[in-house]
Computed example of a mutant assay.
Amino acid sequence: MREDSIRLGQFLKLADLIDNGAEVKPLMIQGEVAVNGEVETRRGRQLAKGDVVTLGGEAVRVS
């Protein structure tokens, strides 16, 4: 990550947790996306270095 922050939807794609942006909203509605252990429903949430995103049992740290 080159910037100070990245949007959650973009990060999910970059981390290969989803194939395309259209997948994000249904997953969030179902409560399957968490940031730092808390369910997140905002696709545009800004993530910072060190945040941990979890989806489907996989956890990825923003670096």
Results as ranks from 00 to 15, higher is better:
Val52Thr: 08
Ser5Gly: 03
Gln46Leu: 14
Leu55Tyr: 09
Val35Glu: 00
Ala22Trp: 07
Asp4Gln: 05
Leu8Ile: 11
Glu32Ser: 09
Val52Cys: 05
Val24Cys: 10
Arg42His: 12
Glu3Tyr: 12
Ala22Lys: 15
Ala15Glu: 01
Ala34Leu: 06
Lys13Asp: 01
Leu8Pro: 12
Leu55Asp: 01
Leu8Cys: 07
Val24Glu: 07
Asp51Thr: 00
Ile6Ala: 02
Ala59Ser: 15
Asp4Ala: 03
Glu40Asp: 08
Val39Trp: 04
Glu32Pro: 09
Gly44Leu: 11
Arg2Phe: 14
Gln46Asn: 12
Ala15Tyr: 00
Pro26Cys: 06
Ile6Arg: 05
Glu38Asp: 12
Gly21Ala: 04
Leu55His: 08
Lys25Thr: 05
Gln10Met: 09
Ile29Leu: 03
Arg43Gln: 12
Arg2Lys: 12
Thr41Ser: 13
Arg61Pro: 04
Glu38Pro: 09
Ala22Asn: 10
Leu14Asn: 10
Leu27Gly: 02
Ile29Met: 01
Glu40Arg: 13
Val33Ile: 11
Gln30Arg: 11
Glu3Asp: 10
Thr41Trp: 11
Asn20Val: 10
Gly57Thr: 06
Leu14Met: 12
Thr54Lys: 12
Gly44Tyr: 11
Thr54Pro: 07
Val52Asp: 02
Val53Arg: 02
Phe11Arg: 01
Glu40Ser: 15
Lys25Ser: 02
Asn36Glu: 01
Gly37Asp: 07
Thr41Asp: 08
Ile29Ser: 02
Val24Arg: 14
Ala15Trp: 01
Ala22Gly: 13
Asp16Trp: 08
Leu27Phe: 06
Gly57Val: 10
Asp51Leu: 03
Gln46Lys: 15
Gly31Phe: 03
Gly50Val: 05
Val52Tyr: 02
Ile6Phe: 01
Gly31Ala: 03
Thr54Met: 10
Met28Asn: 01
Asp16Gln: 14
Asn36Val: 00
Ser63Met: 11
Leu8Met: 06
Ser63Cys: 07
Leu12Asn: 05
Gln10Glu: 10
Leu8Asn: 09
Val62Ile: 14
Glu38Arg: 15
Asn20Glu: 10
Asp51Gly: 01
Lys25Gly: 00
Asp51Pro: 03
Gly21Asn: 11
Asn20Cys: 13
Val24Gln: 07
Val33Gly: 02
Asp16Tyr: 13
Glu38Val: 15
Leu12His: 03
Ile29Asn: 01
Arg43Lys: 15
Asp19Pro: 07
Ala48Ile: 00
